[in-house]
Design a protein around this nucleic acid. Structure first.
Lengths: 227, 227
DNA sequence: GCATATTTGTCCGTATGTATA
DNA sequence: CTATACATACGGACAAATATG
């Protein structure tokens, strides 16, 4: 790994828990693709680059390992997670189970859809700017908002973790516009169904959405991995 | 045969870090009730008692904190988690969502119910022995087996974590027999429905099971906390 | 409110064990 | 097989926060 990736981050270390701040920095670098899947994160190199001790760094590694962004191999160190085709399939199985169950479990309309509406608006802005990666983030926010309708802290946390993993998958897509753009409209349709109180239609749209996205990602993955 | 082909499997066998073994010990003590919710775990006391350094002990604390068995308060230390009434409500909301969705998402019968059958048998043995706490564990195993039918690694992990939290709740019940015993028969009914391929009935039974258990636990909690 | 004692947060140096070229 | 690099674990140190009288 090239330690200069973290050179500018030393100044950011000044607030709350050191380990959490280190984790924040590493999480950003992973999300931005500076630390691609499979990278080894050396305690020595990162510790000196950020100016923190190994104990503190290991604490940060633990946090990110729990978020499934890193994997820890005994006596070998930590690495940026490499997701397999099976992982992608499992992530979408979780999404189908939880997102559909959240919609199905809704009470009587109207629902508080402000967060979902904000996510669609965020997607519109990103699309207008041509920020396709940000559009992917906005789409993730929309689905997080849908699950949040269930009103459960723990369900929210599970969803947040799964969607964070999904970001690792998105990095494999070479054409972010072609992949993300169509789903903005599909989210708008899901939102409209919920606004009309039509849970059944919303769940159907959600199911086909997830099915299509999974197919695209797995096809792309299958092309990449044998290479 | 070349012994080196098994080199990678050494990690899968008896090897684990000191921190993980310490975490195992503490997890057992918590599950057994020796460290009741609210207990403060002093680094000094436990470190010397187990003969490990503070750094190693803190690593173990982190593992258990991520399992939600401990809570970490900055500059104050770690404590055995004290679940609130809201936590109990949230845990059952998650269970309703995931367990029902797992059953609803099942394909065409027959299903592989061996794990669920084994859990009911485990419950029968525990009831015959009068081991009511073990009966509670067996009931937990049954519901874990039901969720495992969904076949998703991530869903399984979520369920395992939620059911581990539930164990903390069970410690609040003063009459373990009165609480756990009736649910053994109800699990048997759910199993029978699944054996007959009747997903709809299984989901209905599951819903009422979870509703009743939640009511009992929350009532007990409400009696305890104001005291 | 203040001063003190205790405990945690962070870091370092080092010895040992493990994996890999 | 050896050498190197690295992770694991320990003990000690000091600063910072908290608890106690």
């Amino acid at each position: 790994m090239d330690p200069s990736v973290l050179a500018g981050d030393r100044a950011l270390l000044g607030r709350s828990s050191t380990a959490e701040r280190v984790a924040d920095i590493l999480r950003s670098r992973i999300a931005e693709g500076y630390l691609p899947p499979g990278s080894k994160l050396s305690e020595e190199i990162i510790g000196t680059a950020l100016g923190v001790s190994r104990n503190t760094l290991r604490e940060a590694f633990r946090l990110l390992t729990h978020e499934r962004l890193l994997v820890h191999e005994l006596n070998r160190g930590v690495f940026v997670r490499v997701l397999t085709v099976q992982d992608v399939n499992d992530i979408y199985q979780v999404r189908r189970l939880i997102e559909c169950a959240a919609v199905r479990g809704l009470g009587v309309p109207p629902y508080d859809l402000s967060a979902a509406e904000a996510a669609v608006a965020e997607g519109d802005r990103a699309a207008a700017d041509g920020s396709w990666l940000q559009l992917g983030t906005a789409n993730i926010h929309f689905h997080y908002a849908v699950v949040a309708l269930a009103g459960s802290r723990r369900v929210n946390e599970v969803m947040r973790a799964v969607l964070a993993e999904l970001r690792l998958v998105f990095h494999a897509m070479d054409n972010p516009r072609g992949f993300h753009e169509p789903y903005l409209e599909r989210n708008r349709e899901i939102l409209a169904s919920l606004q009309e109180g039509d849970k059944v239609r919303a769940e159907l749209l959600l199911t086909s959405y997830l099915s299509d996205a999974e197919k695209q990602l797995i096809q792309r993955y299958s092309e990449l991995l044998p290479a």
